[in-house]
């Protein structure tokens, strides 16, 4: 009895629900004769697409600003980098690296300014971040409309001004990471390059947490008073976390988009934070504590639910259901986390 209870506590209520849900879906998928190999490939790809965006939550949580609902900020810079690289007419790997090269410094500056602001609103970072994110996305809608991009791939051919709502990456970097060194194993396609880039960024971040600077950031986040009494400049560390989170958001959306094949502009980044927040919470993180393993487990679980749910639901019901499931699951998880860990924000 004890060990069952212990295992239960270790897994935690929300994850238990998700795991049971996945098992039910898998059984359903098998009984509906849906080919599972396709599902496994999809899970791997969607895991790789989303993992960096989820990883962006970790520095924010570790540095003490909580869940970064302002992920759209980083995403905007990532999109901007990709747009510029296309405007310059770049292709393939050049295009990918140019996007990153443009996006990362911009995200650093943007993250720094946002971090300064967050230091003024301690205790309300999540609420404020959410609305700053929404404001930026809606402001960028205006910018996308009037920005002087010329490339015909980017702007409407006719009947509209400014950038297209979705920009195809077909001729530039579509699936460039996914296809890199990819191979088939038991009919399952392994997107090696994509997974490698997730591995690389996770490793780099893990290494950072072992440096003096990384430890200081974590200390500032886990106990502000302890940090101050040990001579750590808490505000600086919080800015560090914000910058890292924003930069990872920018890199994350570029990796996401190359796999997806499109850049989604205008209102698309509005709710980009919700699945990322939900993923890391499912992975076992709280508003004040997160690790890389939470990212990997959470992303895998969350994306599995969506990927498996889609074909199953498509057979029993119709398409919109999977979107509804995503909304309920992700917000339900966030709600659970907010009401459970009393008084963090």
């Amino acid at each position: 009895m004890m060990s069952i209870k212990k295992t239960y506590e270790k897994i935690g209520f929300p994850r238990l629900i998700i795991i049971v849900f996945i098992i039910v879906l898998l059984v359903a998928a098998a009984s509906l004769k849906i080919p599972l190999s396709g599902i496994y490939s999809d899970i791997l790809i969607r895991f790789g697409m989303n993992a960096i965006l989820v990883l962006a939550m970790v520095p924010a949580i570790k540095s003490g600003i909580g869940l970064n609902f302002n992920l759209p900020l980083g995403v905007i810079f990532g999109l901007f980098g990709a747009l510029v690289s296309m405007e310059l007419g770049l292709h393939g790997w050049t295009s990918l690296f140019a996007s990153l090269l443009i996006a990362v410094p911009l995200a650093t500056c943007g993250g720094y300014l946002y971090g300064l602001m967050l230091n003024k609103v301690k205790g309300q970072e999540m609420t404020v971040g959410n609305y700053v994110g929404f404001s930026i996305v809606s402001f960028m809608c205006i910018v996308w409309t009037i920005a002087p991009f010329k490339s015909p791939e980017l702007v409407w051919a006719m009947g509209g001004t400014g950038l297209r709502t979705t920009v195809s990456l077909e001729n530039t970097m579509e699936k460039i990471l996914d296809n890199f060194l990819s191979f088939k194993l038991f009919n399952v396609t392994i997107p090696t390059g994509l997974l490698l880039s997730v591995g690389l960024l996770s490793f780099l971040f893990w290494f950072f947490t072992k440096t003096k600077s990384g430890i200081a950031m974590e200390v500032a986040g886990s106990n502000e008073n302890f940090a101050v009494s040990n001579g750590v400049d808490v505000n600086k560390e919080r800015i560090k976390g914000t910058v890292l989170s924003t930069v990872l958001g920018a890199i994350g959306i570029i990796i996401y988009s190359q796999s997806f094949g499109f850049l989604q502009l205008y209102n698309a980044p509005l709710y980009v934070a919700m699945p990322a927040v939900a993923s890391i919470l499912i992975g076992g993180a709280t508003v004040s504590h997160a690790k890389i393993s939470h990212v990997l487990i959470g992303t895998l679980l969350f994306q599995s639910v969506l990927v498996i749910a889609l074909p199953v639901i498509n057979i029993i019901s119709e398409g919109s259901m999977s979107e509804i499931v995503r909304v309920i699951v992700s917000n339900g998880i966030i709600l659970y986390a907010l009401t459970r860990s009393g008084g963090v924000e």
């Binding site: 999540m126 609420t127 917000n331 009401t339 009393g342």
Partner: peptide
């Protein structure tokens, strides 16, 4: 009442959640 001090973000997420339902 379970989320005192962060009512706003909670009520907002609650809105999204209820929308799903």
């Amino acid at each position: 009442n379970k989320a005192k001090g962060k009512e706003m973000i909670t009520s907002m997420i609650l809105g999204f959640f209820a929308n799903g339902i």
